[in-house]
Nucleic acid binder design. Structure first.
Length: 940
RNA sequence: GGGCAUUUAGCUCAGCUGGUUCAGAGCGUUCGCCUCACACGCGAAAGGUCACAGGUUCGAAUCCUGUAAUGCCCACCA
């Protein structure tokens, strides 16, 4: 027997209990068809189409923030929805080792103990990180559970699992064999803080106030008394120590005569040539560019073209090295000062201007990134990008919102090679071994590398590359490595490609684009389910729909950040408002493609709504008991008889909104019954459409309005006077709980069980979603009911202005405007009850009752009079004011309408229905105005 | 420098394919209510030249073109 429900919804206990029950009943577990044969419930067809999401793996070091809360709620909603829609729904969870983030974190921790990673050495350091991972790595996972995430936890993956490691290495080796991975000396982004290379994507460019320095470089062979100079402009004076030339544009007449001559590089006293290169912009600065191949990517290219030396003047910490002469040992910023000062002393500084330019900073450490010449590993991206771009442009993968396709295309067409080596320890170590001869052997393991070496005739010792791979080199394999790639596992064959990906647009390049490339590149080796080769793009891509979720900001529109202290902890919100409330509120606030301005108080939307639902159910339970007492033979779903029914019969009974209601609707249904059925099916239909369009906030709005406005405000009031509608009200509520379950799983599961008395092992989360019955969408009924609502609202307004106590009954007269008397009659009880009438009279005609005795209100289709006993002069005055204001409004509308109707263009070209409506409207306004005038007259 | 978005009630935002769900919701405010589910509630009200300027159209918050403000992304001009 269900216990009576508490007066208000208290989420905490309910949530914990149901989450455990779901897990105990394996609700979240997805199986392949042959595994489903053993499914104890036996309620499902065996061969269900899969619906798959792989989670964007949070960092192991991570803790749940609002962005996670939103993103994972979205994923959970879709997984739960599809589970109810009859799919084998799989949400695969996991975490990312987050090479640089994690290592930075641990090193910071160690610094507090006065240790660096070098004190420990590689092995001990890694041990420490693993310890940390074992200890704290599950925090984020447990937080996802608190959010209600219905992940298949058995399948939890970590990007450094042994099997995952194999996938990463396999992918590396394959790309290397194809010639798409190479090692080269390039200018890369160097993070002096992390002591590592970074990819272009890990560098944030910010407008930075700096200076533009103009330096004079003396020309060799100038006359002593009038030395000739060339003036160059630079923003980074310290790099001049590594200058190897000065370049001018070949078409620049100012400098043509100087080409081929040599300059003396000040401070270093080195002779450097003047060269020509088309890269140089004549208009910028002086038209002369100093060339520092080791410290600027453009200069590097120019250096290659002109066969110039590369002089690296900095060490990995951003400190000037021995190539910087006497500046060696100075930090890069100190060196800058020093260089400028010394040049000033020599009179070689022409001028210094303020200059704002874009400077790269490390995404992670925040420090200024140094363009740095070093040996790194790269992936050639162009060949991978081409089919990946096609997949999106042809719509095989769809982005929501679609506009991100532009961004994607832009990046893909201008894609550059990906620097994948990191001078870190935490991560996948690069599977390359160096011979003493300098040769490099890449293999899946040392043995394989050794074998290759032997083949090449080398038998000496091998040293593995000390570097690890960029985190994203493992992450881009996520949609298939998690299923066992490179092995053609049954899971991989069954569940790939996944269905949707939900993620932030900020990682569209880091991750989304690269996963698409990786899928297309690596999946052809896995056959399709029927054993045929996987060749079509649609079978290779990692997912079909990509949803880019909102960015959450604070009320001032700032990004949420720990340092600003404006980042609420989702778990605190959950504790305070309940998981369902937080989920619902976030989605309610999240229009597609828009940022969210979030304030904690917003959670009240969801909390209040959950509570409303709770109380509506409480009320229904009460009413149902009453009804059962008076109608002992009534069968309510799931009780008694249904418990004994077979699984199949139960199945057939499930689509209640569509089937069982039809009985009620056709035979004894009242106007209100038809109306609520119509509204319910309309809501169900619109919800499905909104889900399909990925407009989840629309889903929440539809359901919120339907439940609160239609069902609670009107229908629950109506069943108080129409007890025969109670069974329908019960079923509508049951449908509401189904419709809401993906979004608010806890409260709906709890209430559904209270309502149906199903045993705990029968779960709403495993049951069917509502299939709308469009045949029940009844415009006529909705229109008719609108008349009733109008009448009730008019009465309420009059009562309110008359200051009639709600408890006080009053005599009411309603005049229909138009042929709607029968409609009014059909809703008589409703008007009576909701208007709290002592007597209610419908009368045709336009009799004016004295404004002294009656308060009145005129609406489009009704005019109502409410009897008053006596009114003070003051109240009369107020009433007059109200009426004249109303009259003003109506007159304005007449004016507007007149303008339209006297416009020949409108009469000629507007479609007939529009014209008709306008005429009706006009008539209606005129009669309204007349009535109002009459009332006003009476009151004076 | 290029691209994308946003600008509607005091606040946060709906308003998809131009014409009675086109000026809306929630919060806040004001008034009245412990009306036998809910004060996390019920009923009612006040509040907006729909950023600005043009244009298209019989008709524009809605379509087009500019302008301004704000935000985001991309870009090797020293």
């Amino acid at each position: 027997m269900p216990e009576p429900l508490a007066k208000a919804y208290v989420p905490n206990a309910v949530e914990k209990r149901w989450y455990e029950t779901w897990e105990k009943n394996h609700l979240f577990n997805a199986n392949r068809p042959e595994q489903n044969a053993q499914d104890a419930t036996g309620r499902r067809a065996l061969d269900k189409p899969p619906f798959v999401i792989v989670i964007p793996p949070p960092n192991v070091t991570g803790i749940l923030h609002m962005g996670h809360a939103l993103n994972n709620t979205i994923q959970d909603v879709y997984v739960r929805l599809h589970r109810m829609l009859g799919h084998e729904a799989l949400w695969l969870p996991g975490t990312d080792h987050a090479s640089i983030a994690t290592q930075t974190k641990i090193e910071r921790e160690m610094r507090a103990e006065g240790l660096t990673r070098h004190d420990l050495g590689r092995e001990k350091f890694l041990e420490r990180v693993w310890e940390w991972k074992e200890k704290y790595g599950d925090i984020i996972i447990s937080q996802l559970r608190a959010l209600g995430c219905s992940c298949d936890w058995r399948r939890t993956r970590f990007t450094m699992d042994p099997a995952y490691y194999e996938a990463v290495i396999e992918a590396f080796v394959r790309l290397h064999e194809k010639g798409l991975i190479y090692r080269g000396k390039r200018i890369i982004n160097w993070s002096p803080l992390a002591q590592s290379a970074l990819s272009d994507e890990e560098v944030i460019h910010k407008e930075t106030d700096g200076k533009l320095y103009y330096f004079k470089y003396p020309i060799v062979g100038s006359h002593g008394d009038q030395p000739e100079y060339i003036t160059i402009a630079t923003t980074r004076p310290e790099t001049m120590l590594g200058d190897v030339a000065v370049a001018v544009n070949p078409d620049d007449d100012r400098y043509k005569r100087l080409v081929g001559r040599m300059l003396i590089l000040p401070l270093m006293n080195r002779e450097i040539p003047i060269i020509m290169d088309g890269y140089v912009d004549k208009e910028f600065g002086t038209g002369c560019v100093k060339i520092t191949p080791a410290h600027d990517p453009n200069d590097f290219e120019i250096g290659l073209r002109h066969d110039l030396p590369q002089i690296n003047v900095m060490d990995t910490h951003g400190v000037i090295n021995e190539n910087g002469g006497r500046f060696a040992g100075l930090d890069r910023f100190d060196a800058r000062k020093q260089v400028v000062e010394e040049l000033q002393l020599l009179g070689l500084v022409e001028k210094i201007e303020n200059y704002t330019h874009s400077v790269g900073y490390s995404e992670r450490g925040g420090e200024m990134v140094e363009p740095y010449l070093s040996d790194q590993w790269f992936i050639s991206m162009k060949p991978l990008a081409e089919p990946a771009l096609r997949a999106v442009e042809e719509g095989i993968i769809q982005f929501h919102p679609e506009r991100w396709v532009n961004t994607y295309r832009h990046w893909m067409t201008g894609i550059r090679d990906w620097c994948i080596s990191r001078q870190l320890w935490w991560g996948h170590r690069i599977p390359a071994w160096y011979a003493e001869t300098g040769e490099i052997f890449v293999g899946r393991n040392e043995d394989e590398a050794r074998a290759k070496a032997k083949e090449a005739g080398y038998n000496g010792s091998l040293q593995q590359d000390p570097d690890v791979l960029d985190t994203w080199v493992s992450a881009w394999l996520w949609p298939f490595a998690t299923f066992g790639w490179p092995n053609a596992t049954p899971d991989l064959i069954e569940f790939y490609p996944t269905s949707m990906l939900s993620t932030g647009a900020d990682i569209i390049f880091f991750w989304v684009a690269r996963m698409i490339m990786a899928g297309i590149e690596f999946m052809p080796s896995i056959p399709l389910k029927d054993g045929s080769p996987r060749t079509k793009l649609r079978d290779l891509i990692p997912f079909r729909d990509v949803y880019f979720h909102n960015i959450i900001r604070d009320q001032q529109g700032r990004k949420l950040s720990k340092s600003l202290g404006n980042s609420p902890d989702p778990l605190d919100l959950i504790a305070k408002y309940g998981t369902d409330a937080v989920r619902f509120s976030l989605l309610y606030l999240a229009p597609m493609g828009q940022d969210i301005r979030f304030a904690e108080a917003s959670c009240e939307i969801g909390r209040n709504f959950a509570n409303k639902l709770w109380n509506a159910t409480r009320f229904i339970l009460m009413k149902r008991d009453e009804y059962k007492t008076s109608h002992p033979k009534t069968e309510f779903e799931s009780e008694d008889t249904e418990l004994m029914a077979s699984g199949e019969q139960r199945m057939a009974n499930k689509k209640r909104l569509a089937t069982r209601h039809s009985l009620l609707a056709t035979e004894n249904a009242t106007l209100a019954d038809k109306w609520i059925l119509s509204r319910a099916n309309r809501a169900a239909r619109d919800v499905r459409a909104a889900f399909d369009r990925y407009e989840i906030n629309e889903v929440t709005k539809i359901l919120y309005d339907f439940v609160w406005r239609d069902y609670c405000d009107w229908y629950l009031e109506i069943i108080k006077i129409q007890p025969d509608s109670i069974p329908l009200a019960v079923e509508i509520l049951e449908g509401i709980l189904r419709l809401l379950h993906p979004i608010m799983p806890f409260v709906t599961e709890e209430l559904w069980h209270a309502l149906t008395s199903e045993p705990e092992s029968v779960l709403l989360g495993r049951d069917d979603y509502i299939t709308p019955d469009e045949g029940k969408i009844d415009d006529e009924a909705e229109n008719a009911f609108l008349v009733i609502q109008e009448a009730v609202e008019a009465v309420r307004l009059v009562r309110s202005t008359l200051k009639l106590a709600p408890s006080k009954q009053a005599e009411i007269i309603v005049q229909p405007r138009g042929k709607i008397l029968d409609v009014l009659e059909s809703g008589k009880g409703i008007v009576e009850r909701l208007g709290n009438a002592s007597s209610l009279k419908f009368e045709e005609g336009t009799v004016d009752y004295s404004s002294k005795e009656y308060g009145s209100e005129i609406r489009a289709r009704v005019r109502v009079f409410v009897k008053i006993e006596n009114r003070s002069p003051e109240e009369q005055k107020k009433e007059r004011e109200r009426i004249s204001k109303e009259l003003e409004r109506v007159l304005a509308q007449i004016e507007q309408s007149n303008a339209k109707l006297s416009n020949p263009g409108f009469l000629e070209r507007a479609p007939v229905p529009v014209l008709e409506k306008e005429r009706e409207k006009h008539q209606s306004y005129i009669s309204q105005a007349e009535k109002l005038q009459a009332s006003l007259f009476e009151l004076t």
